[in-house]
Computed example of a mutant assay.
Amino acid sequence: MKLIHLTDLHLMPPGETLWGLDPFDRLDKALTDIATHHPDAGLCIITGDLAEKGDIAAYKMLKQRLKRFPIETHLMLGNHDDRVNYLQVFGGADETGHVQEVLVREGFHLLLLDTLKGPPSSAGLYDIPRRLWLTAELAKAQGAPVYLFMHHPPFDIGHALMDLIKLDDAAEFAALLKGHDIRHIFFGHAHRTISGSWNGIAFSALPSLNHQLPLVSGAVETVYSDEPPMYGVVTLTPAMTVVHSDAFLHRRPAQMQKDAERGNWF
Rank of each mutant, 00 (worst) to 15 (best):
L116E: 03
D55K: 14
Q142R: 14
D94A: 11
V146M: 03
I34C: 05
L66H: 10
E106P: 06
T115Q: 04
T47K: 03
L125Q: 11
I46S: 01
H109C: 07
L87H: 13
Q142P: 00
A141C: 05
R105F: 02
L110R: 04
D40L: 11
H98T: 05
P70Y: 02
A30D: 06
E72I: 02
F108R: 10
V99Y: 00
L110S: 10
L77P: 03
F24L: 11
L116W: 11
P23G: 04
L18M: 11
L112C: 14
A139V: 05
I46H: 04
D40F: 09
G97R: 08
V99G: 00
G78S: 12
G48N: 12
W133T: 04
I56K: 14
Y126G: 01
L148D: 05
H74V: 05
G48P: 10
G118I: 11
A139Y: 00
G20C: 08
E106M: 06
M61L: 14
R105N: 12
K140I: 00
K60Y: 03
L27W: 06
D82W: 02
G91Y: 04
D55T: 15
I128H: 12
H98L: 12
G20D: 10
L113V: 08
L62M: 11
A136C: 00
A35V: 01
A41H: 13
T17D: 06
Q88N: 14
L87N: 04
T47P: 02
E52Q: 15
L62T: 07
N85T: 09
T17Y: 00
I128A: 15
W133V: 03
L148Y: 08
I71A: 07
D22K: 00
Y126I: 00
P145C: 07
S122F: 04
K63S: 12
L77H: 07
I56G: 00
D127W: 06
G91I: 03
D33M: 04
P23L: 03
L50H: 02
G118Q: 09
L148C: 10
A93K: 15
T135V: 02
G48M: 10
L113I: 09
N79K: 01
T36M: 08
E106L: 07
A35E: 03
S121F: 14
R68L: 13
L50V: 04
A58S: 15
F108S: 14
V99E: 00
T36F: 06
H109M: 00
G92M: 08
L27S: 10
M76Q: 14
L113Q: 09
V102Q: 14
Q88E: 15
F69E: 02
L111Y: 10
H109S: 05
F69I: 07
W133D: 03
K53Y: 15
G124L: 08
I128G: 00
E106I: 05
V89P: 11
F90S: 01
A58W: 05
L116M: 08
V146E: 07
Q88V: 06
L75S: 06
V146T: 12
L116C: 02
H74N: 09
I71Y: 11
H37R: 13
K140F: 01
